[in-house]
């Protein structure tokens, strides 16, 4: 079987896209830690529930950014195919 150069690059791009999504581990762990601490904070001080929730959501959304960069790299590799040009 002959594999042309373009096909090889496409396959490698798909593998690279899969590898890029390993970046999702970090935000997952980080968001889980943030949610856990927020839960314990609400347990200690139930009156501050709304403040704790909004702070937690803001922090989680910022922590998510690195994972989204991984997603963007995967998207670029799969659909824009920068390596093929």
């Amino acid at each position: 079987m002959n594999i042309s150069g373009d096909d090889f690059i496409r396959g490698c791009s798909a593998i690279g896209a899969g590898l890029a999504l390993i970046a999702g581990i970090g935000p997952g762990v980080g968001q889980g830690i943030a949610a856990g601490h927020a839960a314990s904070a609400v347990g200690r001080n139930p009156g501050a529930k709304s403040d704790v929730t909004s702070t937690m959501l803001l922090g989680q959304a910022v922590a998510e950014t690195t994972g989204l960069y991984g997603l963007l790299v995967a998207m670029l590799l799969l659909f824009v195919k920068p390596l093929l040009k």
């Binding site: 959304a61 910022v62 998510e64 950014t65 989204l68 960069y69 997603l71 963007l72 998207m75």
Partner: peptide, 16 residues
């Protein structure tokens, strides 16, 4: 850049 990429990537992931 990070502000706009965050919004863009989140909505794009949902769309995908």
């Amino acid at each position: 850049i990070s502000l706009s990429l965050r919004l863009f990537a989140n909505v794009l992931s949902g769309t995908v």
